[in-house]
Design a protein around this nucleic acid. Structure first.
Lengths: 260, 260
DNA sequence: GGAAGCAACTGGCTTGAGCCAGTTGACTGG
DNA sequence: CCAGTCAACTGGCTCAAGCCAGTTGCTTCC
């Protein structure tokens, strides 16, 4: 029925990958479905097992399938994305629900949210962070707070917050791991910094090796990196956070006015 | 000097990959530098060529290196990102410069911008688009405009715009490939739709196979997908555009007020 | 001087073999 | 009934060999 191999200029591994991709995209192989085993594919196409394996690794790189040692290769199920927006910083939302938008989003999906502050240290700021805070990257010191976000004990994002020492002073922000009711932005308000504008710089890339293991990421899944800056009512930047989120679980959702 | 292979529980391919990754991250192998050839690596580590090859393919999947047939494997040079923000839609910017933010960004990088409208058709809207426009996905018809954006003749992003037929009417938007001065948003204003708010839903993923070839993407590079909705002064959505951008060349940059 | 040819390099892809390590379910013995 | 065992499956990883196809620079010949 199909082209004979002689007519086909694609290498066999590509051909197998293309066939499987087509099956996946036509829902013939639905999300969660099990692919034929490497040995089956090899026999089916009359190739060596390594060639079938290569085909699967192509699809893995495209994020279409995940392999499970001893079990098989499966079409990657598409989980709904968590949609985080600027309302993350809304005071009203914070006080009304008492919950952070992250917790709301996770519970909405029927999963259990958890956040954990891993460390609070004093450090030199990275160059890009120093720039956003208007600090000298060589001499300045900042408070560095590392936060991890989980859904059902699975890590889904990390946020590292940098606060100039003269902003944090000796408030809880400078040393306490737990910040109490209303979380971090309530503590900033205690200090007189009320968030009125934000800037978010977004990029996408493959995870660094540490992120790959730390966020236990499936292969073929990128991360979204958000460099967030908070401004107070005098347009002074008082905090920068770098979020790194699993791209298969998170998305962003902004609604905003268009300046004339 | 290093651990002997006996002490090391990592498979050889991982070990090679880890070593190379370390060299890259320490700038010992700077961006653009050439890695040792597969055959060299194999000899150096006393493994088969396939094993060295596997190591390189790991780094390729992480987006750290790119292979060039016949030339070698190179550390991927990190090009500066184009930063697109909400000012894309600013009227003032549009009229002052007469240039789209895309053109400004590209020329700022010393490259030559080009945009091209590939097609203007009438179609059924995709489900998510229909939802954003408040249309019935089964019965509605929309104008579909497909735009490609280039820098130095290299494609860097695609935008597919969907316009309800009753918005476009028989204006140029419904049929003309070239829209004249001030581009698409000027034409919407001609029809009485003035953009006052936007919503942007952002996600990151590996490119589909067509995107991979169409955008001539390097391996190990994700795309950023932006589903953009424009609202007029009556809060009616009058246009949705799905942007797909190369993640290694593009980023987003939003600054916005925080709603109370 | 210039073009053609060629050798020596590069990665791309495949073969078929082998061993290791998780997973699963059926079969066994208490 | 339960627990343990074990065989048969899965993918993970490697080897050694081979051929193909781009790239580069040198050499040769006109």
């Amino acid at each position: 029925m199909d082209d004979q191999a002689g007519t086909d200029r694609r290498p066999p591994s590509r051909r197998i990958a293309d066939d499987l991709r087509t099956s996946i995209q036509s829902d013939e192989l639905a999300p969660g479905a099990k692919l034929p085993s490497e040995r089956e594919l090899a026999a089916q196409y009359g190739t060596a097992r390594n060639t079938a394996r290569e085909a699967i690794s192509i699809l893995q790189g495209e994020g279409l399938v995940v392999a499970q040692h001893g079990r098989g290769v499966f079409v990657r199920p598409r989980t709904p994305l968590m949609r985080l927006g600027a309302n993350r910083y809304s005071r009203r939302l914070r006080s009304e629900t008492g919950l952070s938008p992250f917790r709301i989003e996770v519970t909405k999906q029927g999963r259990t949210p958890k956040t954990e502050c891993r460390s609070v240290t004093r450090d030199k700021p990275p160059a890009d962070v120093a720039d956003r805070l208007g600090l000298d990257p060589n001499t300045a010191t900042v408070i560095r707070r590392e936060n991890w976000y989980f859904a059902d004990d699975e890590p889904v994002q990390v946020g590292v917050t940098y606060i100039p020492v003269d902003v944090a002073g000796d408030s809880p922000l400078a040393s306490e791991r737990t910040l109490g009711k209303g979380s971090i932005y309530a503590r900033f308000e205690d200090l007189g910094y009320r968030i009125t504008r934000i800037r978010e710089e977004i990029s996408a890339r493959m995870p660094y090796h540490e992120e790959f293991t730390g966020l236990s990421m499936p292969p073929g899944v990128p991360v979204i990196e958000v460099l967030h800056t908070s401004f107070d009512d005098k347009h002074k930047p008082f905090e920068v956070t770098r979020f790194v989120m699993r791209g298969d679980l998170n998305g962003l959702d902004y609604e905003m006015p268009v300046e004339d």
